[in-house]
Design a protein around this nucleic acid. Structure first.
Length: 602
RNA sequence: GCCACCGUAGCUCAACGGCAGAGCGCAAUACUUGUAAUAUUGAUGUUAUGGGUUCAAAUCCCAUCGGUGGCUCCA
């Protein structure tokens, strides 16, 4: 049975209707408010208002209480068709609605202010109680279909939002709400939000000592502390080795480049606003590198390649700098200096499909290893309306069809979205769901006919002619920073053994056993395992508690009994007790976990 | 960058015009402990920064810096 589309669900109608009820209550509180739009969203709804003053906590409380009252009063939602003139009369005091009416009549938008639609000669309005809104619907039959105790607008603070999403236009106040079919569902949703807050990578990063951000260094420039660097280093080493097995060649390129390079690549005008200001050196201008592609291209171009050499796969964990707007920065997931697990493949037209599929398989296997098994693909194509793309139409067609063909041959489900392409070519993005069912955009693969043309790249074909290679840009993680931020939240700080910053905490029963504990840790370190000794003055119970709070996979207790028997007493973070084990038996056990990259979180 | 909110010890927070505090962490001493917090004592602060109002400012006002939730943007 096919899954019901959200747009067709009762929940969607409830939320859409709740948005109207919110607008009604807001207009009672602020009779002069101008109303914009109020659609349902994934986990609730919002409505945008132009208000005479900023909202207070009391306003929100009042509106929520009033909404619940309106819902209980059981007003029917009634639908009416009106012609454009009637509509303009109805909303004569609502400038945002008048603008929407004009656009609807001209076929520029649908009634949520989004998609392009057919020009409309008749419009629909919905009324409940005293409030009438321009709206296509659908709605529930009656306000009482909205459960008053499954409704909240105080769970999340109001926010600013631009009218029509355009930063040059009026900024409105957006009030978010959420509504569910039952109070239990609301409870569960709020509990999920709590859980997400506990897993916040910034909180876990602080608690586990993974990274820090110092304003003196600069915002958006995270500093990796030793324990976080372990995580990062393990991921990097694993991916580097995997890529070498797949025929990639590591390269290294500098952190700055001549501005002319980025003008040639065409990056410069597009990234102009998101770059650190150029540095002037002896009359030349240099940029902190905002992307690695042009550097790798120059490596390719430094040799004449035969078709026999292709594909050439150049890989680098390349750190790039982008001057993101300050309001966009967030922990590790949105930063100003980040390392892309980048690679550029130079391929012949015959190789394109096969190489593309190989890249997709590699990304799939990487995600699977980390337990990020729930993902879908999005094919990003050009927005035909926009002029922010370079290259001939024919090249874009070729690239897009190669991507779609690869998805189909691999049986990878995908959706096509216009306007999600890079400026030089269409791309395939991986949208991954974590354990809390939140969706993140991670790996990306792009097919590019344009940069090879701009840099006049060549290879010598079998008939001796010069041919142009095609480039594939790809980054399975996207960036080390964002990826690790998401991994921290996915695992909730409980990392698999191979990634855990500290794999084993040796816990001496008393401080008489400290020296022996040190020897155990030293032996573990010698075989490449990450072990530390807790030499604090706490008692054993306190040390176990501390290790548990850090989610350290193994606690190794050593006291007189163990020294005498030549064993360690192994306790897992799951609280399972493995009892006394000889040290080498323990080493074998952990090395097995590390080598298999086991996801069982014992 | 824009809108709203916030900034007190390393961390989490209290005090909300009238002596700047607690817990965790840190240090010292005692205890020598067998599976989720041993006890006692101690140190820790230009209350983000700069200016203003006031007899008196962590508290009220302004500016700057930084953070959070969104918007726009994005790996």
């Amino acid at each position: 049975m096919p899954e019901e589309r959200y747009e067709d669900s009762r929940l969607y109608r409830i939320r859409h209707s709740a948005a109207h009820v919110m607008a009604e209550a807001m207009l009672e509180r602020f009779p002069d408010a101008k109303i914009a739009i109020g659609p349902p969203i994934d986990d609730g709804f919002y409505y945008d208002f132009d208000l005479p003053r900023s909202l207070t906590e009391e306003d929100l409380q009042w509106v929520e209480t009033r909404m619940k009252a309106i819902v209980r009063e059981a007003h029917p939602f009634t639908l009416r068709e009106v012609n454009p003139d009637e509509a303009r009369q109805l909303f004569r005091d609502q400038p945002y609605k008048l603008e929407l009416i004009d656009d609807l009549v001209n076929g520029r938008v649908d009634e949520n202010g989004g998609q392009i639609a057919e020009p409309a000669s008749q419009l629909t309005v919905y009324t409940q109680d005293t409030f009438t809104d321009l709206c296509r619907g659908p709605h529930v039959a009656n306000t009482q279909d909205i459960h008053p105790d499954a409704l909240s607008i105080t769970y999340k603070p109001p926010a600013g939002a631009y009218w029509r999403g355009d930063e040059n236009r009026q900024q409105l106040t957006r009030i978010y709400g959420t509504a569910w079919e039952s109070p239990q569902q609301l409870e569960e949703y709020l509990a999920l939000l709590e859980e997400a807050k506990k897993r916040d990578h910034r909180i876990i990063g602080e608690r586990q000592g993974l990274f820090t951000i110092s304003p003196l260094v600069g915002k958006g420039l995270p500093l990796w502390k030793p324990k976080g660097a372990v995580l990062r280093d393990n991921l990097e080493r694993w991916l580097r080795e995997t890529q070498i097995e797949h025929g990639y060649q590591p390269v290294v390129t500098p952190h700055i480049g001549n501005l002319e390079l980025y003008k040639t690549s065409g990056h410069y005008p597009y990234y102009k606003d998101s770059q650190y200001a150029p540095i002037d050196v002896d009359g030349d201008q240099f940029l902190l590198k905002p992307m690695n592609c042009p550097h790798h291209i120059m490596i390719y171009k430094s040799d004449l390649h035969s078709y026999r050499d292709l594909p050439v796969r150049l890989a680098e964990f390349g750190t790039v700098y982008r001057y993101e707007q300050s309001g966009e920065l967030n922990g590790l997931t949105r930063v100003r200096g980040f390392t892309v697990d980048d690679a550029h493949l130079f391929v012949t037209p015959e190789q394109l499909l096969g190489e593309f599929k190989e890249v997709v398989r590699l990304i799939q296997s990487i995600f699977n290893t980390l337990g990020l098994a729930d993902f879908r693909a999005r094919v990003g194509t050009r927005d035909p309306q926009s002029d922010k793309y370079v290259g001939r139409d024919e090249l874009w067609e070729n690239a897009a069809s190669a991507i779609i063909q690869a998805c189909e041959e691999l049986g990878l489900p995908y959706v096509v979205e216009e306007g999600e392409a890079a400026f030089y070519g269409p791309k395939l993005d991986f949208l991954v769901r974590d354990v809390l069912r939140r969706e993140w955009q991670l790996g990306t693969v792009q097919v590019d006919y344009n940069l090879p043309e701009r840099f006049d790249l060549e290879y010598v074909a079998s008939d001796g002619s010069r041919q142009r290679p095609i480039m594939i840009h790809r980054a399975p993680f996207g960036s080390m920073e964002r990826f690790i931020g998401i991994l921290i939240e996915h695992f909730g700080g409980v990392f698999p053994v191979w990634l855990a910053p500290v794999q084993a905490m040796v816990i001496p029963v008393t401080d008489r056993h400290n020296d022996h504990a040190q020897q155990i840790a030293a032996t573990l370190n010698e075989v490449g395992l990450r072990a530390e000794v807790d030499q604090s003055k706490a008692r054993m119970g306190g040390k176990i508690r501390a290790a548990r709070e850090q989610n350290i996979p193994y606690m190794l207790i050593v006291g007189d009994r163990d020294i005498e028997a030549g064993t360690i007493s192994v306790r897992l973070r799951s609280d399972e007790d493995l009892g006394a084990l000889p040290l080498d038996q323990f080493i074998t056990l952990v090395q097995g976990q590390v080598e298999s990259k086991a996801l069982s979180l014992q």
